[in-house]
Each structure stands twice: as C-alpha cells, then as structure tokens.
Design a protein around this nucleic acid. Sequence first.
DNA 1: AGAGTACTTTCCAACTAGGAAAGTACTCCG
DNA 2: CGGAGTACTTTCCTAGTTGGAAAGTACTCT
Lengths: 107, 107
Amino acid sequence: MTTPRFDELIHAPTRLSLVAFLAATTWADFTVLRDSVGLSDSALSKQLTTLADAGYVEIRKAFVGKRPRTSARLTADGRTAFDRHVSALQEIVARAGGSVIPTESQA
Amino acid sequence: MTTPRFDELIHAPTRLSLVAFLAATTWADFTVLRDSVGLSDSALSKQLTTLADAGYVEIRKAFVGKRPRTSARLTADGRTAFDRHVSALQEIVARAGGSVIPTESQA
DNA sequence: AGAGTACTTTCCAACTAGGAAAGTACTCCG
DNA sequence: CGGAGTACTTTCCTAGTTGGAAAGTACTCT
C-alpha cells in the first residue's frame, strides 16, 4: 500500500489526465497524448516540460525514419507520485463517508 | 452507481477538502471548517460562497445565545456532484491501473 | 466607550493555464 | 533551389483563480 501524498502538480485536471494516461501505457506519442487530452501543441509541450522538470516523465526524442517523434513515459518517480496521489484522494473520499470508493484497484 | 462527471469546481484542492469534509458530516461550523482546511476567514468565506452559489452547500446563520454562528452542509446537489466527481476520478484511475506495471528499470 | 466576536467584502499580488503566433530544424517535392 | 510541410518549442499575452490583509458590518460584553 502506498503512502498517501497529495500532489498539486499531478492534481491539476490536465496533468491528472496526462499522468493517468501515461500510467496506463509505456511510451506514448506526442500526438496521441495531445489528442487524448485535447490540448494544443504548445499547451502539451509546456505540460510535458513541467512534468519532466519535476522528474515525473521522461521525454524521448527519436526519429521515425527521418522525422522526429517525441514520446513520453512516466518515470518511476512519476508513477510513485501518481500512486501516492491516488491514495491521498482515496483517503479524502474514504473520510467523506466511503460510500463510493471500491478498493479493487491496487495490485 | 453514479454517473461520472468531472467537476472542476469540486476538484480544486481546497474545495475538494471542504466538500469531502462536509460529505462526512451534517452541519459543520465555520470555525471547524476553517481549521480543518487551514484557510483564513476570508478565504473560507469566499469558497463557501462559491459553493453556495453553485448550489452545492447550504449556509445557515444561526445564533448560539446572542452570537452569530455560521454553519454549512452539503445540499443533495452537492452530494451528487461530489459522488459523480469521485466516480470520474475513479474512472481516470481505473484506466491508469488497467494495465499491469511494466518495466521499471531502463536507461 | 472600547474591545472583541464572527464573519464578509474589497483590494491586491502571485500564479497558472492555454491559445496564437513565431521560431527552429530538418525533409520532401517539383 | 525554393516553397511547403512536419514536429514540436518558445514567447507573448489574456483570462481566470487563489488567498491573505485589511477594512467593513453588526452586534455583544465589560
């Protein structure tokens, strides 16, 4: 079980989607990410930078043929932070009356 | 089961705490609320107004003896919105937890 | 009267987020 | 070669949010 730790960086709606999305896969493509969260190029680029600066995501710039392709994935730190944030949310909800949160998700 | 609906109003950290706290009790006192979320009087007053304007909380101004006392509680709408927001979070997390944790070491 | 309680409102400074547009860098095509 | 396009990144700027301080309201207590 993960130690709860509310993380403001992860909590923000777009970054929560982003991080959750990344938590579900390995490397994700810039365009896929952009479309999945519905952001402009610039907005995604900035959020990715923010997350990378925090050490939560790793950014890989590779070439597919001759064209650049940027992908990102969660780092171990990012995954931990995400898990802890989720725990924090669960704790909040549990205190709230616990009616809603099923505890199936931890592995 | 509640229909998921991400609610930006509720999602913001302080309001999430506030709403979750209120979801756990009936009427809560202004001072108790203020101390539980660690806000200044003005900040709490404003958040409470915001939540009341949204129809999520009901504010009661009563007198205890001769002194005014403000309390708040969730309305049915507030509770529904909270439940739905929690469901939305759950959904996000569920998607993220959907796949087994992959490779943790690489460089 | 002056102090204090219990907020509410106003003012303000600090952020944050996101789009537009420009910039970078390199490729592809006629 | 030059123009168009891809794939982002950076800069500029606007808009919206948050919260504390301080002032305001209203009433009570000594």
